[in-house]
């Protein structure tokens, strides 16, 4: 068990490319922290720096009570699950799990016990004699997990472990990993580009963009109070609508916007906060034309265009009262649902 402290971490590649900058992050013992961001945001690089697979250009990384900057991956007391699982193809599942223990000189009966225990936990006991190529994607994923937890490390590192699975299996493994982590109480750092995966699994979310941290917080914090326009657009699906404040004012919503700071020139509205209630008092009211209906089962996404003919918005409704494409609508959102931003800096106001 260990806490991780990232003190002003930087990564600059030979050739001057800055992959990661100014990372300040404290991860408590037993916490499940998810690094999320678009591809190329530096999340995997940061994870690999913690693993010791990338050198740290600047800053100090502490795992437990040791500064690990100069330590080899093997000495950091971590285990990692790779995106492609990185199972040793020429070894049986048993040997895959036992490899790390043998390298550390664990005694044979102890290896046997721990492998069996991990295999039972992940329900892969029946496959111990098989080679990885004889397993399905989901089973390989479990073996990769098993290889990490059989070592009983202080920290688990996950590098997009579910991205090679089909959608159904991904949801299932998401739950299992989360439950396993709760039960073992091992500090975990998890990288994903999937914001839904990030939201559902994390104790705390770290949103990265361009090698920098945009926001850190619990999933609900990040969702309900995105700190920047980037986070607002990245977390939540469909993405938050961003409207110029001037457009809202010009369409008779000056009153609703009066409570916002004067420099709020961009207003965010989540698709799920918008309704068709034409008679509700207060709030923001917008006239729009329905371009496209996207039924998604339990909910329906409405792609609309405001009366200026240019600005597009998405609305998410659970009930669609007999709408047809091309219809004119009046959209309504309560004043409390407005997210004020300053366009130039992209920062949230209020």
């Amino acid at each position: 068990m260990a806490a991780i402290v990232m003190d002003n971490l930087h990564k600059v590649y030979a050739g001057g490319v800055r992959a990661v900058s100014d990372i300040m992050l404290d991860i408590a013992d037993g916490e499940f922290v998810v690094l999320v961001g678009p591809s190329g945001c530096g999340k995997s690089t940061l994870l690999r720096m913690v693993a010791g697979l990338e050198t740290i250009t600047e800053g100090r990384l502490t795992i437990g009570d040791r500064v690990v900057n100069a330590l080899e991956p093997a000495e950091r007391d971590i285990a990692m699950v790779f995106q492609n699982y990185a199972l040793y193809p020429h070894m049986s599942v048993f040997n895959n799990l036992a490899y790390g223990l043998r390298n550390r000189g664990v005694l044979k009966p102890e290896i046997e016990r721990r492998v069996r225990e991990a295999a039972a936990m992940l329900e892969i006991g029946a496959f111990l004699d098989r080679k990885p190529r004889q397993l399905s994607g989901g089973q390989r994923q479990r073996v990769a997990m098993g290889r990490a937890l059989v070592r009983e490390p202080a920290v688990f590192l996950f590098d997009e472990p579910l991205s090679n699975l089909d959608a159904k299996l991904r949801v299932q493994m998401r739950v299992e990993i989360k439950q396993l982590q709760r039960r073992l109480g091992t500090t975990s750092l998890y990288v994903t580009h999937d914001q839904l995966e990030a939201m559902t699994m994390a104790d705390r979310l770290v949103v990265l963009n361009g090698g920098r941290i945009e926001q850190v917080g619990t999933p609900m914090d990040v969702y309900s109070r995105p700190a920047t326009t980037f986070v607002a657009g990245f977390i939540g699906s469909p993405a938050m609508n961003m409207l110029p404040a001037s457009l809202l004012r010009a369409n008779g919503n000056a009153d609703a916007l009066s409570g916002l700071p004067g420099n709020a020139d961009l207003v965010g509205l989540r698709p799920e906060d918008i309704g068709l209630d034409a008679v509700a008092p207060g709030g923001v009211r917008l006239q729009a034309r329905l371009d496209l209906l996207e039924p998604a089962g339990a909910e329906t996404h409405l792609h609309v265009r405001l009366i200026d003919g240019k600005t597009r918005m998405t609305v998410r409704l659970s009930h669609v009262p007999g709408l047809t494409e091309g219809a004119d609508l009046v959209l309504h959102a309560p004043a409390a649902a407005l997210h004020p931003f300053e366009a130039e800096s992209g920062h949230r106001l209020l």
Binding site: A51, G52, E72, A74, I78, F82, Y99, N103, R147, R151
Partner: peptide, 17 residues
């Protein structure tokens, strides 16, 4: 695959091993 070698490094295997 590079990831196999990295996995082995994390698993505590020396370069020769």
């Amino acid at each position: 695959p590079q990831s196999l070698i990295e996995a082995a490094a994390i698993d505590g295997a020396s370069r020769a091993k």
